[in-house]
Write a protein that binds this DNA or RNA. Structure first.
Ligand SMILES: [Zn+2]
Length: 349
DNA sequence: CGTGTTTGACCTGCGC
DNA sequence: GCGCAGGTCAAACACG
């Protein structure tokens, strides 16, 4: 997971400084050049004059300095890694502590629907915290800085009533080709979804269906499905959040939705509500309609890759900054550079 | 009887 | 403050 942690920083260092490396990858390359150069100088000039000796000493010193820096950097990297894993662990622990996220917790007031204050309290606090951390830990790592920061602030002191925006970790869109004849708004993606609402939006005559992942009780993932206003044959599924469980039924046969038969059978023949699309007459185990797959955030894998790249950059920058600030590093750098310059510039006979 | 869908009401954010 | 629009809830209903 964090192999890059060691290589990345050194990489940027190499690029900018031409310093000796600590990482196993770049090390050979970066080190090889200067070293070869130096050694040539040593081997070829047969006469070891005092100047040469001085240079040699200097070089040795530089080497040591470099080594020291390398060790320091390694230490920093290790530290970072430790902290990171620590953070991940904490996050995970927090999740497991209140697995009963969502608004199910507590007394369901018999009085009609939600009472703002109550549901707000119960739902906002545990729900919000339980949702995101896991994702950051597992895939994100730190992609969503703002969310992370806000969370920290919230947990530390702020009431943090509504972290709406921050609460939307991942939003991805899925375009599914569907026959316009079937009015279903069901997108087969391997998960179990429970419909909890439907709404007619303004800019689209077709209603929008709201689904919630029902595979895992605490899964925060929601999905909106709406037929494209432009192309009736296209369903636009918008996913929010990430599943806190694996892909449920990889089983090719009788995929999921044990109750699916009812939908498929009941709707098409004589729908009581011609205007209301509702459930899916689609074949349950044949997502053959899945055609396009545009996503803003992409699938977990690509997502993770993108995230890790981002992290790499950040880390590299941090490392570089840290080193840049270090006076001893600067001194070493100057020494190294001047040494190189001296080495190269002298008129070779 | 348990589970999932339907659907009107309610909540909330946003623009005016 | 008001109205609108999107999002959510939960009672009622349907189905196996
Ligand atoms: Zn899920």
């Amino acid at each position: 997971m964090d192999p890059w942690i060691g290589s990345q920083p050194s990489l940027s260092l190499d690029l900018h400084v031409g310093l000796p490396p600590l990482s196993r990858h770049q090390a050979p390359v970066a080190m090889a050049k200067p070293k070869v150069l130096v050694e040539e100088n040593f081997l070829q000039p047969l006469k070891k004059e005092p100047e040469v000796a001085a240079l040699e000493t200097e070089l040795q010193r530089m080497g040591e300095e470099n080594r020291r820096l390398a060790e320091a950097l390694t230490a920093v990297a290790a530290k970072y890694e430790a902290l990171r894993s620590q953070y991940t662990g904490m996050v995970a622990a927090g999740v497991t502590n209140n697995p009963s996220s969502t608004s199910e917790g507590g007394s369901v007031s018999p009085s009609r629907k939600r009472k703002t204050s109550e549901s707000l309290d119960t739902a906002a606090a545990p729900g919000a915290q339980a949702q995101h951390p896991p994702q950051h830990g597992l895939q994100n790592g730190g992609q969503q800085q703002p969310g992370l920061a806000d969370q920290m602030e919230c947990t530390s002191g702020e009431p943090c009533k509504r972290i709406r925006e921050e609460c939307k970790p991942k939003v991805s869109k899925l375009y599914v080709h569907a026959d316009p004849s079937d009015l279903s708004l069901v997108v087969k993606d391997g998960y179990q979804w429970r419909k909890y609402g439907q709404k007619v939006t303004k800019d689209n005559p077709c209603p929008r269906a709201y689904f919630r992942c029902s595979f895992a009780p605490a899964c925060p993932v929601k999905k909106k499905v709406q037929r494209s206003a432009d192309d009736n044959t296209i369903l636009v599924a918008t996913y929010e959040g990430e599943h806190n469980h694996g892909q449920p039924p990889p089983a090719p046969s009788s995929q999921q939705q044990p109750h699916d038969a009812k939908n498929a059978a009941a709707k098409p023949p004589s729908p009581p509500r011609p205007a209301a699309p509702a459930a899916a007459p689609q074949s349950p185990d044949h997502p053959q309609q899945l055609l396009h797959h545009h996503q803003q955030k992409q699938q977990p894998q690509q997502d993770a890759v993108a995230a890790s790249e981002l992290i790499r950059r950040n880390l590299a920058e941090q490392m570089a900054m840290t080193l840049t600030r270090d006076p001893s590093f600067k001194a070493a750098l100057v020494t190294a550079l001047s040494g190189r310059i001296l080495e190269l510039s002298p008129t070779k006979d």
